[in-house]
Each structure stands twice: as structure tokens, then as C-alpha cells.
């Protein structure tokens, strides 16, 4: 598969301050994710895609900020809202789109789908459709890195809704107890499906308290500010990598769209949606860079071009044979 990454994905030198050039690359990556997910919504609504899908529109700065701060060899576990994390970690958009179409060229070869995107070569240990399902895995992977004395870190993405499930508590406790090389990234987008934070957690507006209960270091981050996410992620990853213990990233972000594509969001007020829209991380970064219309539009056109090519690639992909369903059950 040809690489598209050289242009869009910036390899950031460790500890280098983010200059405008790097931030422009981040913007292009965020735009790519946005356009990718918009295209996915469009195709799903048109009845082109099987299954059901969840987009993370509004949360792109978290995906790009964390994933750009990760090093080669680091691994992560994602959620049912995984397109952004997967793309931001360098999986080719063609492979992600092909997976959504159930094609063999997909990043899980058609066995996974949107909620089970994998790319082990790039450290993607799987998007998980069970809330909190991947948290114990990154605890164990972080333990393996520690036992083998490897300078690698295992990262978990999860939403605020996951902070009430047993695996969350058991994993945080175990990770801190054993000082595993793990970073827990809580993407607090204020919604557990249709249930707002205030209805599901007594500490919904300060998830750091969850980490404090396990004596874990916690960093609060504005998830709509890519620079803040990147800086905090670097700090957290460095801390975990050094063997000093896991870190909890309490990332405040917004889910601009519904829980799944087609969700009428009857539970959500217009004010809430407006507030989310006002905190669009792409708009904020564009303003910070004082990007003119011409430059922004050229970035946007590039993103559309990559997404259109991915769609074309996916549609022309190879369908698995029905009996391929019996492969890969056992190693």
C-alpha cells in the first residue's frame, strides 16, 4: 500500500516545542479524520455500510495529540469510537475505510469492522466494543514492558462512561500498584451514549478524582487544544516510560454528533450542541495559526482527496469468501 503519511503525518522530535509547521501538520491530520468520519456518516446513511458506526467528530485533537506523542513500539487499546485513534497512529485511510466495507484489504481483513479496528504493526491492539474492555490489556502490556525492561508504553483510550465499570477500577488499581508502563486517556466527552455525565458519575466534572483514589498521577487537559493535549501526553508517556508509574490523562472534550450515526439525540439540548460546536478543535487550531481561507481550503481539499481515494479503494476491495469466516479462530 502506498504511503500517504510523509506529507500528513509529522514525526515530531521529542521535547521539541511545537512550531507552526508542526501545528499545520496536526491540523491536516485532524482535518483528514474529520473528513473521513463525515464521509463515513454519509456512506452509512446512504445504506452503503453494514453494521453500525460511531464517530468522534469533535474529539480529533485528542486522537492526534496523544498519538503524535507516542513513540514507535508503543501500543494502544481503543474504543468503539476508534477511527480517529487508528488514523492518527498512521494506519492508512484506505485500510480503515476498507475495513468498514468488510473487505480483505481492511486493517482487520474484514473480521473486525468499525468497532474492532486493529493494526498490530502500528501498536493498535484493537478497538474494543465492550466499554472498559481494553483497560486491563494495557495494564498487562505495560506490565510486560516493565518486566522486560523495554522503553515502551501501553495507552488506553476510553470515555467518561467507562469510569463506572469494574475493569476501570481494577485496572487503575493494579497499574498503580505494580507501576506498569501505562497511560490511561479518559476522553470525557460528557456523554455515555445518551446519558449525561451528571447522571452517571458523582465526579463527572472532575474525573481526576477517580485517579486520585488510586494514588495515580493525573493531568487535566483541555482536549480541544491540540498543543495542550500533545504536551500533556508527552509528559505522561515520559513518566510511564521511565518506570515511575502510570498516568491518568483527564481530557475534557466534546462529542459533537450523536452516539451512533442516525442517533436523533432527543436527549440533548440545542444549547449543548452549540456549546460543543463552539469548541471545535479544528476551528480553534485554525484561529491560532491565523490560517487564511486559501491555505485552509487547500488543506481541506487535500483531506477530501485522500478520503475520496480511500472510498474508491474500499469499494473496489476484495470481498472475503464466506468460508474465510472459519479461519483465524485458533492460532
Amino acid at each position: 500500500m502506498e504511503t500517504y503519511t510523509a506529507r500528513v503525518m509529522a514525526k515530531v522530535e521529542k521535547k521539541r516545542a511545537l512550531n507552526d509547521e508542526t501545528l499545520r501538520d496536526f491540523l491536516r491530520e485532524m482535518l483528514l479524520i474529520r473528513r473521513f468520519e463525515e464521509k463515513v456518516e454519509e456512506q452509512f446513511r446512504a445504506g452503503e455500510l453494514p453494521g453500525f458506526l460511531h464517530v468522534a467528530i469533535g474529539q480529533e485533537a485528542v486522537a492526534v495529540g496523544v498519538c503524535q506523542a507516542m513513540e514507535e513500539g508503543d501500543v494502544f487499546a481503543s474504543t468503539h469510537r476508534a477511527h480517529g485513534h487508528t488514523l492518527a497512529r498512521g494506519t492508512h485511510p484506505n485500510a480503515v475505510m476498507a475495513e468498514l466495507y468488510g473487505k480483505m484489504e481492511g486493517c482487520s481483513h474484514g473480521y473486525g469492522g468499525s468497532m474492532h479496528l486493529y493494526d498490530v504493526e502500528r501498536g493498535n491492539y484493537g478497538a474494543n466494543a465492550v466499554i472498559g474492555g481494553g483497560l486491563p490489556h494495557v495494564t498487562g502490556a505495560g506490565l510486560a514492558f516493565k518486566l522486560r525492561d523495554e522503553p515502551r508504553v501501553a495507552v488506553a483510550f476510553f470515555g467518561d462512561g467507562a469510569t463506572n465499570i469494574g475493569t476501570f477500577h481494577e485496572s487503575l488499581n493494579l497499574a498503580q500498584l505494580w507501576k506498569t508502563k501505562t497511560v490511561f486517556v479518559c476522553e470525557n466527552n460528557h456523554w455515555a451514549e445518551s446519558t449525561p455525565g451528571w447522571q452517571h458519575s458523582p465526579v463527572w466534572d472532575d474525573m481526576s478524582k477517580r485517579a486520585l483514589a488510586y494514588d495515580m498521577r493525573s493531568i487535566k487537559v483541555d482536549g480541544q487544544d491540540i498543543q495542550a493535549v500533545f504536551d500533556a501526553s508527552q509528559e505522561a508517556l515520559e513518566h510511564a516510560r521511565s518506570g515511575e508509574g502510570p498516568v491518568f490523562l483527564d481530557v475534557e472534550t466534546y462529542r459533537m454528533h450523536g452516539h451512533f450515526i442516525g442517533d436523533p439525540q432527543v436527549y440533548r439540548t440545542k444549547e449543548d450542541r452549540d456549546e460543543a460546536a463552539q469548541n471545535d478543535p479544528i476551528v480553534r487550531l485554525r484561529e491560532r495559526l491565523a490560517l487564511g481561507d486559501d491555505e485552509f481550503e487547500s488543506f481541506d481539499a487535500q483531506a477530501h482527496e485522500i478520503v475520496d481515494a480511500a472510498l474508491e479503494f474500499a469499494k473496489n476491495g476484495t470481498d472475503p469468501q464466506p468460508e474465510d469466516a472459519l479461519k483465524n479462530v485458533y492460532a
Binding site: V75, Y125, L135, P136, H137, V138, T139, G140, A141, G142, L143, A144, F145, L147, R148, A154, G166, T167, E170, S171, N173, L174, L177, W178
Partner: peptide, 22 residues
């Protein structure tokens, strides 16, 4: 390794360590 009473995390951490090559 002695563990806390956390069956989900013990098994899940075993899965993660196994995926990481142990």
C-alpha cells in the same frame, strides 16, 4: 505475582501481557 482480588484485571492483564509477547 500476588494480585488484588480482581479477577477481571488479572485475566485482562494476562491477555495484555500475552499480546505483548509473554
Amino acid at each position: 505475582r500476588n494480585t488484588p482480588i480482581s479477577e477481571m484485571a488479572i485475566v485482562g492483564a494476562g491477555i495484555g501481557a500475552a499480546m505483548a509477547g509473554m
